[in-house]
């Protein structure tokens, strides 16, 4: 019986594993792999990197990409103070109203507001970007297979196209983008931002930092999830042990 159980569970596991890789594979390009601090069972977000990543997002990405699901107030997760968050939010204007006279008016952003969208709608975004639509980045690392590594690879993957590659007008070659033709030109260049903590702003560093920030934006509850998970599983292990002992005891008087 035990043999039956193990063989079937092994079979199921094998099929599940192959399934995951089957879905993740897609294009046959192997992504660069980074040992993210937020990976693994105990991993937590690197706060300093995420704070730098926010700077990269705001100074580099935000011109074209929205972050419409993330509220300024949640930045407190990354160690920003209430004052910093208020100041950050107030830098953008939001349409509000109507006021007492029925007029709509602009007001400075509040911590309860979400990050502003650079374009009023998808059509406007496409019109400003040669027909391509810069996606909202709120969920980008969860919306791509192996998202963290994909994003990092993509941002650092702008290389010269092979000589025989037929690159369409206005497109850019990227080693990791599916099909290799991407409308977005290489977004980050050396020293594109100046980090206040003195970290050298290399392309590699900025790509990593913005990836950490966007990974947090996509899965802000990751740390809570892992710490609750650990306690739940430890509890269940003890529970299973005690239940097993009870089961043995109950069954022992059976002949």
């Amino acid at each position: 019986m035990l043999k039956l159980l193990t063989s079937l569970s092994i079979a199921a596991l094998v099929s599940l594993t192959s399934l995951g890789t089957a879905q993740a594979a897609g294009e046959a390009v192997e992504l660069k792999s980074v040992a993210w601090k937020h990976g693994g069972i105990f991993g937590t977000y690197d706060r300093a990197a995420a704070q730098r990543g926010l700077q990269v997002y705001r100074e580099v990405c935000a011109g074209c990409h929205g972050l419409g699901l993330v509220a300024f107030r949640t930045l407190s997760d990354l160690g920003f103070s209430e004052e910093e968050i208020k100041a950050l939010a107030a830098e953008s204007d939001y349409l509000d109203g109507p006021d007492g006279d029925g007029e709509m008016f602009d007001r400075p952003g509040k911590p309860s507001d979400k990050f502003p969208s650079p374009f009023p709608n998808e059509q406007a975004a496409r019109a400003s970007n040669g027909g391509a639509y810069p996606p909202d980045l709120s969920l980008i690392t969860k919306a791509r297979p192996n998202g963290d590594n994909y994003l990092y690879s993509l941002l650092t993957g702008y290389v010269d196209a092979p000589a025989d590659f037929n690159l369409a007008e206005g497109m850019n070659y990227n080693a990791y983008f599916p099909g290799h033709q991407i409308a977005m030109p290489s977004p980050i260049s050396e020293d594109a931002v100046e980090y206040s903590d003195g970290t050298p702003a290399t392309v590699d560093q900025m790509a990593k930092d913005v990836t950490v920030f966007l990974a947090w934006a996509a899965e802000p509850k990751l740390e809570q999830r892992k710490s609750i998970g650990l306690r739940v599983i430890l509890f269940l292990l003890i529970l299973a042990g005690v239940f097993y002992a009870v089961k043995r005891k109950v069954w022992s008087d059976l002949h």
Binding site: K226, G229, I233, A240, V246, V250, W251
Partner: peptide
């Protein structure tokens, strides 16, 4: 009590399997 305890033990083991996905590989 024979199968209630046996099923409870099975449930505890199964919940560990469930939790592994739920907390560490939810997507």
């Amino acid at each position: 009590p024979y199968y209630t305890v046996k099923d409870l033990y099975g449930l505890a083991i199964f919940l560990i399997f469930f939790s592994a996905f739920l907390f560490y590989a939810p997507n």
